[in-house]
Amino acid sequence: MDNLKGQGKPLPADYFSGDLFQHFQKIAKDAGFKPHWLKLQHAIRDELKDITEKYTNGQKDGLQFRVTKLNEKIMEYNKSCPPPMQKGTVRLETIEAASQRW
């Protein structure tokens, strides 16, 4: 803890003004931290892309199980993301449209 960046220097004045949560978000973003819901969003998008490719190529074995697991991830995502960004679950029949939304 002795070799921290900025050790011994005073904190900037903007650290003491405004909302504490906004400051936390700014510091976390500057440090490269990604919220859990954003990581989930990327994982869901990648899984949707893979399922869509297999569905359009006619490889439908096991896809319904994968869609069920994907919907569980979507539910977890909806619990942790901001309300305007929440999305509905997907069905195998509408997987292509869902892939475009994500």
Rank of each mutant, 00 (worst) to 15 (best):
M1A: 10
M1L: 09
M1N: 05
M1R: 04
D2G: 12
K5M: 14
G6V: 12
Q7T: 10
G8I: 02
G8V: 04
G8P: 02
K9L: 15
P10D: 06
P10C: 03
P10N: 08
P12C: 06
P12S: 13
D14W: 13
Y15E: 08
Y15D: 09
F16E: 06
S17G: 05
G18T: 09
L20Q: 10
F21T: 12
F21E: 15
F21H: 11
F21M: 13
H23K: 15
H23G: 12
Q25M: 14
K26S: 07
K26L: 11
K26C: 02
A28T: 14
A28D: 10
F33Q: 07
K34N: 05
K34G: 01
P35N: 10
H36R: 14
W37T: 03
L38M: 15
L40D: 04
Q41N: 08
H42L: 03
I44H: 07
I44K: 11
I44M: 08
R45A: 11
D46S: 09
D46E: 14
D46F: 01
E47W: 00
E47I: 02
K49P: 01
D50I: 07
I51K: 01
I51Y: 00
I51P: 00
I51L: 03
I51Q: 01
I51G: 00
E53L: 12
K54S: 09
T56C: 02
T56D: 11
Q59V: 08
K60F: 02
K60H: 09
K60Y: 02
K60N: 11
L63R: 08
L63C: 05
L63M: 09
F65H: 10
R66Y: 11
R66E: 15
V67W: 06
T68W: 04
T68G: 06
K69A: 05
K69Q: 11
K69P: 00
L70I: 04
L70D: 03
L70V: 01
L70N: 00
L70E: 01
E72F: 01
E72G: 03
K73H: 06
K73C: 00
I74T: 06
M75K: 07
M75P: 00
M75A: 09
Y77Q: 02
Y77W: 03
K79N: 02
S80W: 07
C81Q: 12
P84L: 07
M85H: 11
Q86W: 04
Q86P: 01
K87R: 14
G88D: 15
G88M: 08
T89R: 10
V90A: 08
R91V: 12
R91K: 15
L92S: 05
E93I: 12
T94G: 05
E96A: 03
E96N: 02
E96H: 02
S99M: 09
W102L: 04
